[in-house]
């Protein structure tokens, strides 16, 4: 992918005229460079991932396990508290990535146009990406307090009775999703900024000469040419959104009830309760969900880009 002009067959490193034997004996790119990282990665990532398929079929306490077939999965799909986590995960991932694409692109357009305070604005929008998710979650829990919180007090000033952002069962998940967007939109924005500034200036000039208005330039020049940025933002936010745990745990613990539980928080709760097999089944379901969504998207979006 990034090999550029190097092609498939690398040119011989040491020219054959000098010392062919020595060159062949000492490959300058030894495969053992991969070994230390490969060992850590295999032991702590690959092996547990493969083991999870087996252990999800057991009743498991780390010391002994008993094979119980698909019982964990049946339980997962039967209990409303567990299966609710699956739908919530999907809602959360779709809402956060959708908003990040739309807002990230809008902010990207704004922050590449000729306005004052551009550098300052870029920094302000990006900074929340770097701060602690737990800190952000706890801060917004306070700001979203139904009676005393700053958000509802501000709404009250203009005569709106604000809802119980985190206490209303139908709203809690979306409220957390909004905070996720608040924290993550800066990353989407810088990706769009990088995508938009890489569009050759001639295209924009040509469109203007042809009499295209601002909207037409956006729709027919910026939108298609910023496509790689959109692909990146969609895939990154879906991966992040489907796995999301920290923010939900810091703000609602999955509550009220199980209304804002996602798969990752279900995994943690079952782990805490000692149901290791069930928890691991949750992990396998999350694995299947993430691959089933990301892989097709990856191929679809990348292929279309090649066709253009």
């Amino acid at each position: 992918m990034h090999d550029g002009y190097h092609g498939k067959n690398p040119p011989p490193l040491v020219r054959p005229t000098t010392a062919p034997r020595a060159a062949r004996r000492r490959n300058p790119y030894p495969l053992w460079f991969l070994i230390p990282a490969a060992v850590i990665y295999t032991v702590l990532f690959l092996v547990p991932t493969f083991a999870s398929f087996y252990y999800s079929l057991t009743r498991w306490s780390l010391f002994d396990q008993q094979f119980i077939g698909l019982d964990n999965y049946i339980q997962f799909f039967r209990e409303p508290g567990l299966i609710g986590g699956l739908t919530n995960t999907l809602i959360y991932a779709v809402v956060t990535s959708g908003l990040k694409v739309v807002l990230g692109m809008a902010l990207g357009m704004l922050l590449t146009s000729q306005i004052i305070g551009r550098g300052l604005l870029r920094s302000v929008v990006f900074f929340p990406v770097l701060v602690s998710t737990i800190g952000v979650g706890l801060t917004f829990t306070v700001l979203m307090n139904p009676d005393q919180g700053l958000i509802n007090k501000t709404l009250a000033l203009v005569g709106i009775q604000g809802p119980g952002w985190l206490t209303d069962p139908s709203l809690a998940l979306l409220s957390v999703a909004f905070v996720d967007v608040w924290k993550g939109v800066g990353l989407a924005t810088v990706i769009y900024i990088a995508g938009i500034v890489s569009i050759p200036h001639e295209y924009l000039e040509a469109a203007k000469v042809d009499g295209a208005g601002r909207m037409a330039v956006f729709r027919h020049v910026v939108l298609p040419l910023a496509r790689p940025a959109t692909v990146t933002v969609v895939i990154l936010s879906l991966i992040g959104g489907l796995r999301s745990f920290d923010l939900i745990w810091a703000m609602t613990h999955g509550g009220p009830g199980f209304t804002s539980d996602v798969i990752a928080s279900v995994i943690y709760k079952q782990y805490q309760a000692g149901f290791y097999g069930l928890s691991t089944a949750g992990n396998v379901i999350l694995f299947v969900l993430v691959t089933a969504i990301i892989l097709p998207l990856f191929y679809l979006l990348n292929r279309k880009e090649v066709e253009q």
Binding site: L44, F45, V47, P48, T49, A51, S52, Y55, W60, L62, I239, L242, R243, A264, I267, Y268, Y271, Y276, S279, T280, N283, V284, L286, F287, V290, T291, I294, L295
Partner: peptide, 11 residues
């Protein structure tokens, strides 16, 4: 892409 499996990693 793949989310790490929690309990098997502890194991």
């Amino acid at each position: 892409i793949v989310p790490p499996a929690v309990v098997p990693t502890i194991w």
